[in-house]
Design a protein around this nucleic acid. Structure first.
Lengths: 157, 157
DNA sequence: GCCAGATACTTAACATGTTAAGTTTATGGA
DNA sequence: TCCATAAACTTAACATGTTAAGTATCTGGC
């Protein structure tokens, strides 16, 4: 007995060859290095993604922000008032189309971003060194491909 | 202006070259194919991971289950009573060491697992075809490496 | 045997993920 | 113009993620 449940043949590949599982595992392993660092600055992982997206791409509406951060618009609706209350972002209604809410980063938010970014880049560099530049590049390419070959997001209405 | 915030130089690599972000993005893209399928069987993504782990590796304690499923023991403590109430798993206190809770899958749970597994494997096969067997193999190897090179989980007490 | 510390788990509190329903504003055709 | 529909967002409800604190059990040194 090697530990498998009664050594019965399973109708499925081993868990360790589940691609979603390994993607999650790899991500969790990496985030363990970033999380304490974000925590020191009082930022959740999701709040950091929002600041980073806005710092990089400028102001945008909720849906675009959600796509870029991979955070559901409903979650953003709940998070953004807090970030706004802390003076890190701003929200305003679009003048052309009042259905849109335009989100942008404040000077205070950008300042925080710059500080956190500097330390994050050091962690990235360390990770890149351990994985290897060439292999990391291949990994990015394969992830891009996995994202490309997946079906488009379907609005099921 | 290409959309970048005032074309200012950022203190950080582009968001699309954030490894945690691309891992999340790839995972979300794949899960979009699995989620509706799990939903038809009334299973959350996390419940499915639990059943799969138990079907594959047999009974185990909360911490081992959490490690295998990448679900925090605190979340398991909350989830497992539901799965138990539905008759899909069983829990018992270890006789040797009463601190341990041993979790196992029931016949009913295994039957559900077998049904879902069959359909999941078809989705896997489709994904493997689109990514390519060789590239998928490389992807698994690189993910394994990323997991290996990350620091061990630290119990910060 | 006793007790301080460690271990395994649970509970609680709050943030986020997820889905469905509700609100406001735009749009396009009769 | 009017109205049905759609689009963008918000709100609500419940599940899960995350951290800290609490409870029960065990271990090892005395």
């Amino acid at each position: 007995m090697s530990g498998n449940a009664k050594d019965k043949k399973l109708a499925m590949r081993p868990f360790a060859r589940s691609l979603p599982m390994q993607l999650l595992r790899a991500r969790e392993a990496l985030m363990q290095e970033f999380r304490p660092h974000l925590r020191e600055h009082g930022l959740s992982e999701q709040q950091w993604r929002v600041l980073r997206a806005l710092a990089e791409a400028g102001s945008m509406d909720i849906n675009a922000l959600g796509e870029m951060c991979q955070i559901h618009p409903a979650s953003l609706s709940r998070m953004l008032p807090n970030l706004e209350g802390e003076g890190r972002i701003e929200r305003r209604t679009s003048r052309q189309d009042q259905r849109y809410v335009i989100v942008s980063i404040t000077a205070k938010g950008k300042s925080l971003f710059q500080r956190v970014a500097k330390e994050s880049e050091q962690i990235y560099a360390s990770i890149e060194q351990r994985i290897g530049s060439r292999e990391l590049k291949t990994l990015y390419e394969l992830l891009d491909k996995a994202i490309r070959v997946a079906p488009e997001q379907i609005e099921s209405n």
